[in-house]
């Protein structure tokens, strides 16, 4: 699989990262280097090998169904570029 500039531009757009057109060829090359490495990994036969999800035998940590958090509206909104009446305010998005 090879990434061209159009694909690189699309990935950037989906991630909402602004990339200037002149930076696209370099970005595409970087993607291809990464994918090339992945393809190299794909050459290893892993039939019958269970995926390793953790380096130590750990169980997914669980919490009880208890309310222990929240009630911090001011803190939650403190980094928002625009907040009004307790809401985040963003440019209008309507379907």
């Amino acid at each position: 699989m090879s990434i061209d500039e159009t694909t690189a531009a699309r990935v950037a757009k989906l991630a909402r990262i602004k990339v200037e057109p002149e930076a696209l060829p370099g970005l595409a090359t970087e993607f291809n280097t990464i994918l090339g490495f992945i393809e190299q990994l794909n050459e290893v036969n892993v039939d019958g090998v269970e995926p390793m999800t953790s380096v130590t035998p750990m169980r997914l940590k669980r919490r009880q169904d208890v309310v222990t958090d929240g009630n911090q509206q001011a803190k939650v909104l403190s980094n928002a570029p625009d907040a009004r009446e307790g809401f985040f305010a963003v440019p209008k998005v309507v379907e």
């Binding site: 009004r84 985040f88 305010a89 963003v90 440019p91 209008k92 309507v94």
Partner: peptide
């Protein structure tokens, strides 16, 4: 709630 903005909760 506003003509130009959407409010998010």
């Amino acid at each position: 709630m506003d003509p130009n903005m959407s409010f998010v909760d």
